[in-house]
Design a protein around this nucleic acid. Structure first.
Lengths: 229, 229
DNA sequence: TGTACATCAGTGAACGCGCGTTCACTGATGTAC
DNA sequence: TGTACATCAGTGAACGCGCGTTCACTGATGTAC
């Protein structure tokens, strides 16, 4: 374990910050989450998110965090909530541009992968080991039920997964996909997208195929059973 | 970041160990790697692999590690080398049982996933962030060239990947797969397998489909372009 | 309109902990003569 | 066969560091009377 780089506050940050006005103390919560995200982006890992590091980043005293978060895990959890929102939004936008259900499905999947490859540290924290407290995260997200009455998906990230399921269902409804179990096939697609982002960012020196969007298209079409008769 | 559990040596370990005989000092290297692996299995993460924790585990003084490893990262790297060997062996055995090329391909892939799900901590360390020093790892593994003269794969894990490529090539040769680029399609398969292991172990509460072997079979057949005309 | 008080939004010093790393050392075992 | 010496395989105390957490505190702002 190499010595942690003391990425102390620079001169600008070290200048005494102005304290929040009365009743606006909650603003510091957002600042803490942003600081944690900045640390994750800079170091590439959430391991560097310590109470003291976050405090340094903002220019506050370490104990000032306690009224807002019980520990560093809670801060990381809040970061995960925020980043999942960003990812969901990216997938939603990516799935709006296509001119037919298949292209909208592919577009959403490509947006997912693009988000992951463009923001590897952000993406990685979503599935960090630190989230042993994944149940905790549930409080931040609305439970989404995929199929009425069964298979409730209470996990975090459920919203972007349900977008995927709906996109595949639209392909089936349009007669473009031969899928007979859209949830199971959506799981397969999600798993493929995640594996791609995860491995590409972890093993950049592997000779990955060129043309990531085309690669994703091929994988998604196979798993979505498009063009299978 | 919760306080690290002081998983000190139990009474048995605390008893003074017998020092290695002259000329057999290198044995401690293996003990150190085994101890690190034990810590990873127990805690579920390689973050807990510190020089002092490893020394405690074996019952030696912390500085005794230095003649064998420069730092904890080197120890983890050696663990990765060992576990990659285990994984490769499991995949090889899994790919020997099938009665035709397709079943051998599927068998190897199922063995990969089974290894990952049965040993989540071991699997996870293979793709740990800690391996920023992935180049370092290269010294432990023989470079494997997938196609003569091009696309050299120098990364760690190349051996198990090349088994996969060969298994798919055998399907193509037997006329069972419509793949026109076995390397690219092998990448897709690998990515899918990895994504499955990674997500299943990270999000155990997600409603995963039952029958993992059948699920893997379906994904692999789709991506291997088996049954596509 | 004045004033005592409560509350909010933090601060700063201190503590004990596990960590990596250094240093001089110890004691058994082999080897040259 | 005896003995001085070198080497091997570690040990144990000490150091400074960043960490989480506690404690009593400060100073501005609102509020009851």
């Amino acid at each position: 374990m190499e010595k942690m780089m003391t990425a102390g506050p620079d001169a600008a940050q070290a200048r005494r910050r102005q304290r929040n006005a009365r009743g606006e103390g909650a603003r510091l919560s957002d600042e803490i989450v942003s600081a944690a995200l900045a640390i994750i982006e800079r170091t590439g890992t959430d391991e560097a998110v310590t109470l003291r590091a976050v405090a340094r980043e903002i220019g506050i005293a370490a104990p000032s965090i306690y009224p807002h978060f019980a520990d560093a895990d809670e801060i990381v959890t809040a970061v995960v909530a925020r980043v999942f929102g960003e990812l969901t939004e990216a997938v939603r936008r990516g799935g709006e541009t296509g001119d037919d259900p298949v292209n909208r499905l592919v577009g959403g999947c490509q947006a997912y992968v693009t988000f992951g490859l463009d923001h590897p540290a952000r993406y990685r924290v979503l599935f960090s080991e630190r989230e042993s407290s994944l149940t905790r995260v549930a409080q931040y997200c609305t439970p989404v039920v995929i199929e009425p009455g069964e298979r409730p998906v209470l996990e975090f990230g459920a919203e972007s997964f349900s977008i995927l399921v709906q996109a595949l269902q639209n392909c089936v409804d349009a007669g473009a996909s031969a899928s007979t179990d859209v949830v199971e096939d959506s799981v397969a697609i999600w798993v493929g997208l995640h594996g791609l982002v995860s491995l590409r960012t972890t093993l950049p020196r592997f000779p990955w195929p060129d043309g990531i969007d085309e690669f994703v298209r091929g994988v998604v079409l196979s798993l979505a059973k498009v063009g299978v008769h």
